[in-house]
Amino acid sequence: MTIKSKGYATHSATAELRPFAFERRDPRPQDIVISIAYCGICHSDIHSARNEWGRTSYPFVPGHEIVGRVAAVGKHVTGFKVGDLAGVGCLVDSCRICFSCEAGLEQYCDNGFTGTYGGEDKIGGTPHSMTFGGYSDTITVDQRFVLHIPENLDLASAAPLLCAGITTYSPLKHWNVGPGLRVGVIGLGGLGHMGVKFAHAMGAHVTMITTSPSKGADARKLGADGVLISKDAEAMRHARDSFDFLLNTIPVGHDVDPYMALLKRDATMVIVGSVEPLKRVDGIPLIFRRRSLAGSLIGGLRETQEMLDFCGQHGIVCDIERISIKDVNKAYDRTVRGDVKYRFVIDMATLAS
């Protein structure tokens, strides 16, 4: 037995997303079935749907910023009941026994985690060999990979927390961002706007670093204490050696050296946006000031729940534009153009029409 599901899929790198019928597995004793209310659009969805990373299998159902309500639970499920708000992020399985998984860092699973979409479905129970994502009406997930969504948050605006939220929260927590520290967030998009909100809520002095002077007012509304225009050579020179931490959300390969110069001695810049080769990294700014350049990938399940609870306590959600699923292809094109503040979220109730 399986659960009949419907969603949107693409069947090639050049095809648009279209309605698609498929199957989810019936819940095992440890599984939770979620009726999906909203799913955010991440730029990774677009890269994957268009096979820009060269590893997509078709048909392909994107979506890993999933929120909804529990529709069914297996007999061994604890902590969730039918009707609860629940979320699913970027991964739905991992080996669970390696050093990383045992540390609650499933995103770094030594044997490779199973992505919410486009991953080899090692659990099975359906005719499909790969996982299908959240651009759909329902999903079945092992309870270990299901998260509680605080009831006080707007549900649609909470959806991107499952990727954009944890991607920025995790490095800020890992590098102990807090009061008294000067933090720069590079790039004001889906990731950057969450970085500003989190760093501000953690008590840091936050500067938005952007190429666009027009984004200054928005950055301040989000919680930035100041704005640094990276194209302004004099302003960048004046800001050298002044930041304790930089969160770099630029989504493409770029020269990191101008930003490295902004760091104090022993400070760190973390890359979370670019999954492309960096165009230039000079060793001198690192060596002569003992600076660090690091990377960070989403978060484990324990930390993701911590992030959601933090959002509930501080009333933090993403700034979104809610859309009908019939407009998903237009939303993809607008996302590529940077024409969204700051995340599209699909209303899955529109699947019915």
Rank of each mutant, 00 (worst) to 15 (best):
K6P: 05
Y8R: 04
A9K: 01
T10H: 05
H11L: 13
T14M: 04
L17K: 03
F22A: 03
D26Q: 13
R28G: 05
Q30I: 15
D31F: 04
I34V: 08
S35R: 10
Y38N: 07
G40C: 06
I41E: 00
C42F: 00
H43C: 01
H43K: 03
I46N: 08
W53Y: 15
G54W: 11
S57K: 14
G63I: 01
H64S: 09
I66P: 06
R69F: 12
A71M: 09
V73W: 04
G74W: 05
G83T: 08
A86M: 07
A86H: 02
V88A: 12
L91E: 04
L91G: 03
V92C: 11
D93Y: 06
D93A: 10
D93K: 03
R96Q: 15
I97D: 15
E102S: 15
A103M: 15
L105F: 15
Q107P: 10
Y108M: 11
C109L: 06
N111L: 11
N111H: 11
G112D: 03
G112P: 00
T114Q: 06
G115S: 05
Y117C: 07
D121A: 06
S129C: 07
F132D: 00
F132N: 00
G134Q: 01
D137S: 08
T140K: 03
T140I: 03
T140L: 07
V141R: 00
D142Q: 05
L147M: 08
L147D: 01
H148L: 03
I149Q: 00
P150W: 01
N152W: 06
A156K: 13
A158F: 09
A159N: 13
L162R: 07
C163G: 10
A164W: 06
A164P: 11
G165A: 13
T167C: 11
Y169W: 07
P171V: 09
H174A: 15
V177T: 07
P179F: 06
L181Q: 08
G190P: 05
G195E: 04
G195C: 04
A201C: 10
H205R: 12
T207W: 00
I209L: 06
T210R: 07
S214L: 12
D218H: 14
A219F: 01
L222E: 05
G223I: 04
A224V: 06
V227E: 04
L228W: 07
S230L: 03
E234G: 09
A235C: 13
R237V: 14
R240S: 14
I250Y: 14
G253H: 13
H254R: 12
V256C: 10
A261V: 12
K264R: 14
K264Q: 13
K264P: 13
T268W: 01
L278M: 15
L278E: 10
K279T: 14
R280I: 11
V281L: 12
V281G: 05
I284S: 15
P285F: 08
S296T: 04
I298L: 11
R302L: 15
D309N: 15
F310M: 04
F310W: 02
C311N: 03
H314R: 13
H314C: 12
I320Q: 02
I320V: 10
I320T: 02
E321F: 00
R322H: 05
R322L: 12
I325Y: 02
V328M: 03
N329K: 09
K330T: 09
Y332V: 12
R334A: 08
V336C: 09
R337F: 09
R343Y: 11
D347N: 08
M348H: 01
